[in-house]
Write a protein that binds this DNA or RNA. Structure first.
Lengths: 290, 290
DNA sequence: CGGCCTTGTGAACATCCTGTGACATTTCGT
DNA sequence: ACGAAATGTCACAGGATGTTCACAAGGCCG
């Protein structure tokens, strides 16, 4: 079970790091000569790449699951800025390298401010474009690469990045890829509340559209598996209107092994322990209604 | 409420810990003119910065805890590549922007491959340097998301951005998102009077329509929770016709721990402390609010 | 002292948010 | 191609939160 995780997946936005795994990049340009040389070089590097000649709608770019995009703003025409802004807003993790003709400082600054990661002025050497794309991508995934196989653990669960699994007493929770990424993300930020938007963008790679319940659904799946394997603990706490917080909290009064470093009302569990069997709500305190 | 403020875009009410929070950057260069202009601009942006004129040993850079470093390889001399490589190896998370004179494609590619995040050729416009540094940093810190979160505290309350909550002696005030954003906003401007319009626009993102009492309502809710948790303190003060001011003030005469640093008539509390137990009004100060 | 405006309250009401279970879609192995 | 598993969508139910109101209380100014 489980071990089936295809760690090599592309665009693995979340974590794990396929070190120098194949990159997926797209080039939006019309300069045939430039494209040809660049393509050749990309082929040699073994990067998956695709050439686009027309202003692909920003939404379509999402589906491509790219690591980076090289674009000549000239192709976009007057819509360029708008397009760029929108794309950056949707895919905050996408590396965007503008490679276009002569420009003014103001234009470059604007592009960079809107979200572009680099701006190269044509004519330029393909090798430099490659290097800059690499630089952008490297920076982009750096944090993820920090997969220092240091098994996180909280309460009864142990999260092993090297196995892409979480265990309780040696038994795998049999988490799917997404589930694992989620618990890993949450656990890595233990104690801190992560907003839905952040969770979403880090797991899915792009900004969440209002109304998307994916995060909630996966949290529920995770909770189910966690609860089945470790019934007397609560790990994922809901923060209404904000997001979720990971923190192992024992339901057993005595066991005070709650890894919340500071500020934890020692009496909070005195109130309603048995009341919320499924009430994941984390009213922090307020046992005493209002 | 809605799409909930994503800390990143809107007027991040969340203690500005996100967006443009102070960055620490260093500039290693000798071009006095360049440095001067750049420094000025950095000052205006409120970024902590430091100018270095000599090849600081890579190790020393570590101690500076920088977000980014702008460096002119010329200053490093022949050791440049080695230095750069070592630095990048040591601080993979440091944003490095090379800003140096004319160079060959090969040199730029080499620099970028070694770990530089960007390479700007002098002469260049300071604004572009800033923009590129921002771009680099933006990329770099996205994942870390580590909102510096230095828990604000005043009187008995402690405001923790990492939890989206305020605590008093370890007990959560159980604030809702808006309530938290409000107290965070007020506390961040501790001592200063914030006008209703400003509070409104920072929390709701748009301008308040005349007659909207939302701010008042939330102030009331906050006061209720604050008072229940910390009865002997007053935190939110009303400035008639203007807005509110956050300042922890003990009701115990002796305890003079009033954290109002500047401009506060020391005798103000001598007057009518006992008169208005619930009168949050704070008229004495009204005048100097303008 | 009296009128006019601002702020404090409490409650009713309208919305939004999250937990769930069912179902549609995509992915992957056989 | 087929089927199982995984992922993504939907719609509903309840509870939590945000907004609006009407009115009381208090401050400002003449």
């Amino acid at each position: 079970m489980t071990e089936s995780i295809t760690a090599s997946d592309v665009a693995a936005p979340s974590g794990q790091g396929g070190a120098s795994s194949a990159l997926r990049i797209a080039v939006l340009d019309r300069d045939s000569g430039f494209i040809q040389v660049l393509s050749k070089r990309l082929d040699r590097l073994g990067w998956e790449h695709r050439v686009l000649a027309s202003p692909v709608p920003a939404d379509a770019v999402v589906a491509m699951r790219l690591s980076a995009l090289v674009v000549d703003l000239a192709v976009l025409g007057p819509q360029a800025w708008e397009w760029l802004e929108r794309l950056c807003g949707t895919l905050p993790d996408l590396g965007i390298v503008v490679c276009t003709g002569p420009s003014t400082v103001a234009q470059r600054v604007r592009g960079l401010r809107l979200g572009a990661d680099d701006w190269i002025t044509k004519p330029c050497h393909p090798e430099e474009v490659i290097a800059r794309v690499q630089s952008v991508v490297r920076r982009r995934r750096r944090p993820s690469g920090r997969t220092e196989t240091k098994p996180l653990s909280a309460g009864e669960v142990e999260i092993r990045s090297d196995r892409f699994q979480a265990f309780v007493g040696g038994d795998s929770l049999d988490l799917t890829r997404r589930e694992f990424e989620l618990i890993e993300l949450l656990a890595a930020a233990e104690g801190r509340v992560l907003e839905r938007e952040e969770i979403y963008s880090r797991l899915w790679g792009y900004t969440m559209v209002r109304g998307d319940r994916s995060v909630d659904v996966f949290v529920r799946k995770l909770r189910q598996k966690l609860e089945k394997a470790s019934p007397r603990w609560r790990y994922i706490h809901t923060h209404f209107g904000i997001g979720y917080r990971f923190a192992a909290e024992s339901l057993d009064l005595h066991s005070a092994e709650v890894e919340v470093p500071p500020s934890v009302p020692a009496d909070w569990d005195a109130g309603d322990q048995g009341e919320f069997p499924r009430a994941h709500q984390d009213r922090e305190l307020t046992p005493d209604a209002l």
